[in-house]
């Protein structure tokens, strides 16, 4: 009996330690972040490639207003409604007082100030980006206009609102490697970087597991629309029969091969991809032709 109790206590201790270890927000190596010389022009380009404004600009913002990251857009999911926070450089309402290293922690690891961030910020993808790119992006973000609009609280259901649980979620779904393990050529590899790291296309186009992680076995194979009605299209070769040129043209103009226009949230995405270089749009197309077909 005594031995059994000791075993149980040990198990609880180990479990607690493990849980604490897993549930503590991780941080990037401060020296590595400090060693980066931020490139603002690069950061401005990455801002489009990573689609920052699509979520963090105010609802309905167009043109230069997309550079004001006031937040407020709402994303309804099965876990509740997420509200994009103000990440403008305003020191009170935004994140103006965050050093570059803290912004990089948030973007790449989902570690905000002393707490986990919800993966509605696509850090499982951004975490695959090069550190120098994310630090340049963070430095560019600091040059954008500040906005005093306060961030709204998240409207998340019971259990999912316990942020310590996100540590376990990250252990399952974040920090994972590339989905396309062996890109055949440099163009496909560049496309992989744009799609799997910066563009975070999989966040909408890949179906999710019960716990809300992306199902890598059905990568970019289409998914239910988060609104509950309709589906986000399958853009793997199993669902998209467009030529690489057709895909690149679509990302530039928002027009499909039959000249129907992109609708709903994809129209917002085209605002970003239209600003990329033709080479980068071609790389995305090459990548989409190279991934395994999902039927």
């Amino acid at each position: 009996m005594r031995r059994w109790l000791t075993g149980l206590a040990a198990l609880i201790l180990i479990g607690t330690a493990l849980a604490l270890g897993l549930t503590r927000p991780r941080h990037l190596d401060a020296a590595a972040v400090a060693a980066v010389a931020p490139d603002l022009a690069r950061g401005a380009y990455l801002f489009d490639a990573a689609g920052c404004a699509s979520c963090h600009a105010a609802p309905e913002a167009t043109g230069d207003a997309r550079l004001v990251l006031a937040g407020g857009r709402r994303f309804s999911t099965t876990f509740g409604t997420f509200v994009a926070p103000n990440i403008s450089p305003d020191p009170k309402a935004g994140i103006g007082d965050w050093p570059l290293a803290e912004i990089a922690d948030a973007v790449m690891l989902g570690s905000g100030r002393h707490r986990h961030l919800y993966p509605v910020l696509p850090y499982p993808e951004y975490g695959r980006a090069r550190l120098a790119d994310i630090v340049s992006l963070a430095a560019y973000q600091k040059t954008l206009p500040p906005d005093p609009t306060p961030s709204q609280p998240q409207e998340i259901g019971f259990l999912f609102n316990i942020r310590a649980g996100l540590g376990l979620w990250k252990w399952l779904y974040a920090g994972r490697g590339w989905v396309l393990a062996d890109p055949a050529d440099p163009q496909t590899e560049r496309g992989r970087y744009l799609v799997e790291a910066l563009g975070h296309c999989g966040e909408c186009h890949t179906p999710r597991t019960l716990l809300g992680g992306l199902d890598r076995s059905r990568w970019l194979g289409g998914a239910p629309d988060p609104s509950g009605k309709g589906r986000i299209p399958n853009i793997s070769p199993g669902g998209l029969d467009w030529s690489a040129d057709d895909i690149a043209s679509f990302l530039e103009t928002g027009l499909k091969p039959d000249f129907d226009s992109a609708g709903s949230s994809m129209a917002e995405v085209i605002r970003n991809t239209a600003r990329l270089t033709p080479e980068d749009r071609g790389a995305i197309a090459a990548y989409l032709k190279a991934i395994p077909p999902v039927r």
Binding site: D225, S227, K229, G230, R231, I232, P233, T253, G254, L255, F259, D260, S261, A262, G263, S264, S265, M266, A267, E268, I270
Partner: peptide
């Protein structure tokens, strides 16, 4: 085409 897209963005669900 911009007129097509302008409406589809707000009023049409994903195809």
């Amino acid at each position: 085409f911009k007129a097509c897209g302008g409406c589809h963005e707000t009023y049409r669900a994903p195809l």
